[in-house]
Each structure stands twice: as structure tokens, then as C-alpha cells.
């Protein structure tokens, strides 16, 4: 899962990034409205964490611009930026009117500083879950159960040892069940701009996942990419 953090305070931005990366998210940082907008126009993100008081204006301006775009169909090839992108506002403005204004502008959630990172993570997971159209916190596929909160994967009720990156790939593929994701798309969802990505990194992670969860779970479409078929298609 790839998260864009738009925050002008270096301490908060880097603290958020470090914590998010520890939880397996790919994180990109911007410190201004314009920087955030150009990032959204260039790359695909799964969620946006947005501060309101930015160096060149109010984060709400960025949110308004985003929400003013026509709604994309949610396909991988939808135009950028995605106007339905889940947005979590983090701000020091704690008055009820300000929260209401923030939510009315189009934010999906609103978190007042200072906050515990675990709470932010839980809210982010809820946003991502809603964005993926899931009501349940667990992702189930056959005998595989993936818990985004605990970042664990069970197969036939047995815990499977899985690395954060493998977990992220599995989650992305499960969220996009039935759709083929190219290697580039997977890299885009899993790595931030400045992350060093080995050319065969995705293949290696897929290979490990197949070994741990069964060779038939992840299908390869030669020359296109990878996908997990929907349950009912089996």
C-alpha cells in the first residue's frame, strides 16, 4: 500500500514515514500543496495523509482540487489523480467547526495532533478497507486469512511467516482480486520514489508467496502481470 504524506513539518513527516514503513507501507513525502498535487498527478496512491497548515497554503485547497475532479471508475488505468482517494487529515485545529469543515471539504477522516501512531494506523486501515469495498477487517480468500491490523497471514488456521513486503504484495493482489496487476503497477503501489528496487524484486516476492501459500494462489499472465482469481471463479 502506497501512502502520500503531505506535511510541512519535517519531524512529523519523517516520524510518520518511519512508522508507516515499519508497518509495510510505501511512503512518499511532500511539504506543500503544489508538491502534493504534482505527486498525485504523477503517481497512484492508496491513501493521502494531509496536513492543513502547509507552507504554501491550506491543505484543504489540495483536498478541494482533488474532490472537484470527476469520479474515476477505480480501474488501474483510471486518470490521475484519483478523486476518490481516501484522505486522512492530520491537523492541530481541534475546534468542532474546523473538524466539520475538514470533513465537509471531502476528508474521509480527521485526526487532531498529537496522536498515537497506532490510532492513525487503525484509521488508515479502516479507510483502505472502505476504499476496497470491504466491511470486514480481515481479508479472506479460500483458506487464507490476512489480518491488516496485525499484519499476519494464516493458511488453514496456521500462521504463515511472511515478510512485510510479501504481506504488502499479497494484500494488494487480494484487494484487486480478479484483476491483473503488472510488475510496474505493483512496484508503484509498493515502493516510494526514492526506494531502490531490484529489477526482479517483485518476482522474488511472488515466488516466496507461492512457496508459503501454495503455487496456485497467484497466477501469472505472461507478458502482462500477476493476479489472484476470485474465489467463485475457482
Amino acid at each position: 500500500m502506497r501512502i502520500l504524506v503531505v506535511e510541512d513539518d519535517a519531524g512529523i513527516a519523517e516520524g510518520l514515514a518511519a512508522n508507516l514503513r515499519q508497518r509495510g507501507y510505501a511512503v512518499d513525502l511532500c511539504e506543500s500543496v503544489e508538491g502534493g498535487w504534482s505527486a498525485l498527478c504523477r503517481e497512484r496512491f492508496d491513501a493521502l495523509i494531509l496536513d492543513l497548515g502547509l507552507v504554501d497554503g491550506d491543505g484543504a485547497q489540495l483536498l478541494q482540487r482533488l474532490r472537484a475532479l470527476p469520479l474515476s471508475q477505480g480501474s488501474a488505468k483510471a486518470p490521475l489523480p484519483d478523486s476518490a482517494l481516501p484522505v486522512l487529515i492530520i491537523t492541530a485545529r481541534d475546534e468542532v467547526e474546523q473538524r466539520i469543515a475538514g470533513l465537509d471539504t471531502g476528508a474521509d477522516d480527521y485526526l487532531v495532533k498529537p496522536f498515537d501512531f497506532n490510532e492513525l494506523d487503525a484509521r488508515l486501515r479502516a479507510l483502505l478497507r472502505r476504499s476496497a469495498g470491504r466491511a470486514q477487517p480481515m481479508v479472506r480468500h479460500g483458506d487464507i486469512v490476512l489480518d491488516p491490523a496485525a499484519r499476519t497471514v494464516c493458511r488453514a488456521d496456521r500462521l504463515v511467516d511472511i515478510s512485510p513486503r510479501e504481506f504488502a504484495i499479497l494484500l494488494v493482489l487480494l484487494e484487486a482480486r480478479g484483476r491483473v496487476l503488472s510488475r510496474a503497477q505493483l512496484e508503484e503501489r509498493l515502493y516510494s520514489w526514492n526506494a531502490a528496487v531490484e529489477s526482479n524484486a517483485i518476482e522474488v516476492h511472488i515466488h516466496h508467496l507461492r512457496r508459503k501459500l501454495g503455487a496456485t494462489l497467484i497466477q501469472t499472465m505472461r507478458g502482462v502481470g500477476y493476479f489472484i482469481p476470485k474465489d467463485e471463479a475457482r
Binding site: G11, E14, G15, A18, N19, P114, F115, N118
Partner: peptide, 8 residues
């Protein structure tokens, strides 16, 4: 907030 996040 920065302190909280950095300590976490």
C-alpha cells in the same frame, strides 16, 4: 506530535 511519532 513529532516527538510522539519519533519515539514510536
Amino acid at each position: 506530535t513529532s516527538i510522539v511519532l519519533q519515539t514510536q
